[in-house]
Each structure stands twice: as structure tokens, then as C-alpha cells.
Amino acid sequence: MVRTSNMLTTILNVLTLLLGFLLITGAIWTSVHPGSATLCEKTFAKPYLFTGIFLVVLAVLGIVGACYKVNAILYIYSGVLFVMIVGLLVFAIFGLVVTNKRIGKAVSNQGYKEYKFGDYSKWLQKHVVNEKNWDNIKSCLVDSRICMAIAKAKTMEEFYHNHLTPLESGCCKPPEDCNYLFVNNTYWVPPKTGPASDELDCKSWSNDQKQLCFDCGSCKVGVLNNMRHLWRGFAIMNFSILVFVIVIYSISCCAIRNNQEEPQPCHI
């Protein structure tokens, strides 16, 4: 009779196998139907595909090793899980380090804060909002229509009392120092004397709804702020995954001990 640890390992890996197939299916569907997928969705297709393939291979190793009591395969399976545990720990610590720095300056009498690059770690600045990544990030921002979500305001005073997110503040309006004149939520014009500041962001602003301030440094800072919150969320999810992987690793170690007995296949 198959031991409990072998059966648990098999059941957990069947679930992992289904998740892997789901990710692979989603990635293939995005590739086969490119017209119905945004550029942002296409960007995630390959990571989903590779993650799905990895989960399928890992699950097959776990099922075969536990079900047919093949210790050689279970050793490989457990070794991969151990590497995953170490990797998840390193990622958690690294994520806390690179997202720890943030200050932000509240704009006087306004419903939002403005942030600067100095509020974020050098690593995030170098690897997230670099020239290589920015075109894809900008396409995602345009596709998400984040600026269309801003509450309608009839006057500049009403607009400034909106509680804008850092992403909306950085990408959907000119920076405060430019002193642009409000026409509507996403349409601003410079004063007759020209922008009040020589900042590059003042020149980057466009009333084209696909441009706005998406090329501004303030928009990149807004993305960094979003990334910081996302990474904090990932840290919680990472901890949950880490606990799950440790549980599977412990069960697989028990299955290896059980497999010292005469091999006996199980039936699912």
C-alpha cells in the first residue's frame, strides 16, 4: 500500500501539472491570436510559457518518483525544490532591499505627492525604467488607459483636489513646476510666456492622448512607485509560495525514505 507521503506528493504534483498546462495554454493562445492581445500581454507570453514548461517537467518528476518509487528521480525532484527554496529566500531579501527606499514630497494643498528618482534605489532605476524596457512599459500604460480613469474636473482647483496616484500624477499631467494651464483632465497648455521651468519633462508633455507625459521622467518615477508596491505584494506571495514549497520538499523527503521499500506503483 502506498504511503501517505507518496500519495500527497502525487496529488500536489497533479495540481502543479494542471497549473503548468494552464500557463502554457495561455501563452500559446496569446501567440496564436496576436491581434486580440495587447503588446503588454504579449510581453508576458514567454515568461508564462517557460514557467509552465518548468512546472510541467517538475510535476512529472514528482509524480513518477512518488508513484513508482524511483528514488533517483525523487532525488532530482527534491534537489530542484531545494534550489527553489534558496532562490525564493534570496529573492525575498533582495526585494526588500531594493524597494526599501522611498520618501515622496507632498505638493502643497494638492491631493497627491510628487516623487523624484532619488526616492528609489539605483537598481530599480537602472533595470526597470531603462531605454530598453521603457517602450514596452509605455505601451502597457497606453493600453491600460490609466489617464482615462481620472475623475472628471471642470476647473484646475477641482482637478488638484483629486487624490491622484503617483502613476496618474506622473504620466497624465505636466509636472507642477511647469505651470501649465488646465483645459481638461488630460489637456494642458503652456502659459504665453512659455513653461516656467527648463525641465525636460515640460518639453516632453504632449496633448496627444497616446503621448501625454508617458516619456517624462515623472512618469518613470510613477512606474517605480508602482513597482515598489508590486514587489511588496510579491513579497507576501513569495512567502506563501516558500511555505508551500517547503511543505512539498518535506513530504518528498518522506517519500524518499518510503521508497527504500520494494517499489510498488500507485493508481491515480
Rank of each mutant, 00 (worst) to 15 (best):
F50W: 12
Q110P: 00
N259Y: 08
A66N: 05
H163L: 06
P190H: 11
L18G: 04
S250H: 10
A45N: 06
V32N: 03
T99Y: 09
T155Y: 06
N184K: 15
Y75Q: 05
H229C: 03
L17A: 12
C67F: 01
T165N: 09
G104Q: 13
L224M: 12
C147D: 07
N136W: 07
L141N: 01
L124P: 01
G104L: 14
Y68Q: 12
P190G: 07
K105D: 14
A255E: 01
I24T: 02
N226E: 10
L212I: 02
L17V: 07
L230Q: 09
S197Y: 04
Y160W: 06
H163T: 09
G26H: 04
E199D: 11
S250L: 13
W29L: 14
H267T: 15
I150G: 02
L17E: 06
M84L: 14
C140W: 05
V247E: 00
T10W: 03
E41C: 00
R232S: 04
F50Q: 05
H267W: 15
E176T: 12
I236L: 14
H127S: 02
K210I: 05
F244L: 14
S144A: 15
S121I: 04
N179S: 13
A37W: 07
I246P: 00
M7N: 09
S144Q: 10
F44N: 00
N162H: 12
I241D: 02
K154L: 02
S139E: 08
F91M: 13
